[in-house]
């Protein structure tokens, strides 16, 4: 998925002030703001949150338009709910804005925090979950080229031009091949991991610290939350 690829790229290559903030303060900020979005009953508040996150995205040197475009994906599904509330004044707008705000917030956090740091938090809950998250992450980037090549080959060889059923059959065969190859590769990877001593432990070293900007971000989150309660 190209957006995962880019999100990963942004979080690992951009060196803004926001990127330097460690994962825990970002999660605390995320929870405060997300909760503010969820409980918010004021359209004004939701618009305010939208601009605050957009501002933070700019500060983080991220491409605002691209991230806004991604956040609109959530608006598509939110519209199913919004349309069913169309007779209730501003409510549909609130529903849409809540979805966009929340998506924008998530994107802001993942575009400024490398996935390993985020996933390391799962290690505190369950080693199995942490293992699966880390391996999914690593394997995603191992096979992304393969699937892109397969889709390209499918297109070049006329896989999309023989009518809908033929197209789906071609896609099915491509995915089938991908499944088989991936399973065989995962078996091979397991063997290699065993040679490297694998006994069910996967971890990522994460920095936990609270410096000025870390505290500022938390403070910002608390402020937004307080405004949401007041409004």
């Amino acid at each position: 998925m190209s957006s995962i690829y880019l999100v990963d790229y942004y979080s690992n290559t951009i060196k803004s002030v926001v990127h330097q903030i460690t994962v825990i303060p970002k999660i605390i900020f995320l929870l405060f703001v997300l909760f503010s979005v969820v409980i918010s009953k004021s359209l004004f508040n939701l618009i305010l949150i939208f601009f605050v996150i957009a501002f933070l995205i700019v500060i983080a040197q991220l491409p605002l338009l691209k991230i806004l475009k991604w956040s609109l994906y959530s608006a598509f599904f939110a519209s199913l709910f919004a349309v069913s509330q169309i007779q209730y004044g501003l409510l549909p707008f609130q529903t849409m804005l809540k979805a966009i705000d929340a998506a924008l917030l998530m994107l802001f956090v993942v575009c400024t925090t490398p996935y390993p740091a985020l996933f390391s938090l799962f290690g505190k809950i369950s080693t199995i979950l942490a293992n699966v998250f880390f391996m999914t992450y690593r394997f995603f980037f191992l096979i992304i080229d393969e699937i892109q090549t397969k889709v390209m080959v499918l297109k070049i060889r006329g896989g999309y031009v023989g009518g809908p059923i033929k197209t789906l059959k071609n896609i099915g065969s491509t995915i089938g091949r991908l499944f088989i190859h991936s399973i065989e590769r995962s078996e091979k990877l397991y063997d290699i991991m065993i040679i490297r001593g694998y006994r069910g432990v996967m971890f990522s070293r994460t920095t936990f610290r609270f410096r000025l900007f870390d505290l500022l971000l938390i403070g910002f989150g608390v402020l937004i939350f307080l405004i949401a309660i007041i409004l």
């Binding site: 996935y115 992450y137 690593r138 990877l189 290699i192 069910g200 996967m202 070293r205």
Partner: peptide, 30 residues
């Protein structure tokens, strides 16, 4: 296992940890 280490021909399949530090530490941690 602890006495033996190997570097494979296909290096991609050998690197498991998400970051360089995590990968180098993989065997020790396990």
């Amino acid at each position: 296992g602890r006495k033996v280490a190997m570097v494979m021909q296909n290096i991609e399949d050998q690197l498991i940890g998400p970051t360089v530090f995590d990968d180098i530490a993989f065997s020790l941690v396990n």
